[in-house]
Amino acid sequence: MAGRGGSLKREPQVELRKLDDDYCEFVLKNTDASMANALRRVILVEVPTIAVELVEFEANTTVLNDEFIAHRLGLVPLVSSRVHEMKSIYEAADDDDFLDVQLSLDVKCTSDDTISVTSKDLQLDPAYPDIHPVGYHDPCDRGILLVKMRRGQELKLRAVARKGTAKDHAKWMPVATCVFQYMPEITINHALMDTLTDEQKEEWCDADPRKTFKLNKLTHRVEVTNPELYMYDGEVIAKAEEMGKPGLVTIKQKQDTFIFRVEGTGVLRLEDIVLTACEVLARKIRNLQAALEEEATLFDQGGAAPMQM
């Protein structure tokens, strides 16, 4: 990375730009792509959440078959604020472990109209009323459609929700998306730019669909409004070449600054997701450190532990 102009200071810094219920944007500085990508990957697939994993049907006379409904139930996002108290079945150690949340559904259509069974029809586990589908208590939310029913049809089932990560199945993914963007680094060759007339400058600025550039009417100079708007479409560079002025602007990706955007699903608070992700990363490092130390000790004692292949 060093060769590509990365920062020598390796103290990552964070600048939080925006944080609300379902969107979070922060800038990660002074680090490199491996770090940023590690964080992205952990946020996507290693932050545990709760999702329906096992469904037992007692009655299903709807048009959708058992597997189909079970699959749809699995994809319903459940509020997972208590996921840290739970253990996944892989981690289960003793009988008192908090493994399962029992949800149930019992709907029968008695009206002549088609009714919709949604995530709001799920009955929560009395022991854990705070584990519920997203939007369950929100009167404005219509819930997630599971199946439609006509008169006489019935659906009765028991669903067991468990802790898991998206490495196993996409239903445990805590976010809609998590993406980082390289900060663009835009250098305008003002000497060359000044050979253009104002009209030409204006025309050049208009070539960029995102309007990254603006002509300052007072100074007659072209300025960058917001470098992040630029999306590497190459339109301005092509325009410059078309105008016979190649090299008017050079645009590079800054190798040590990343704009992170995390879009949530309501399963977890976004700050919790990012923090948990950092925690997971840290735990990995700690585990690695511990394992290395142990190995080193054994090695010092006379190489008792042969290298494991």
Partner: peptide
């Protein structure tokens, strides 16, 4: 392919 291993769009995060 694992979702995380897929290439993603820088602007939208779409895999």
């Amino acid at each position: 392919f694992e979702d995380v291993d897929m290439p993603f769009c820088e602007s939208t995060g779409i895999r």
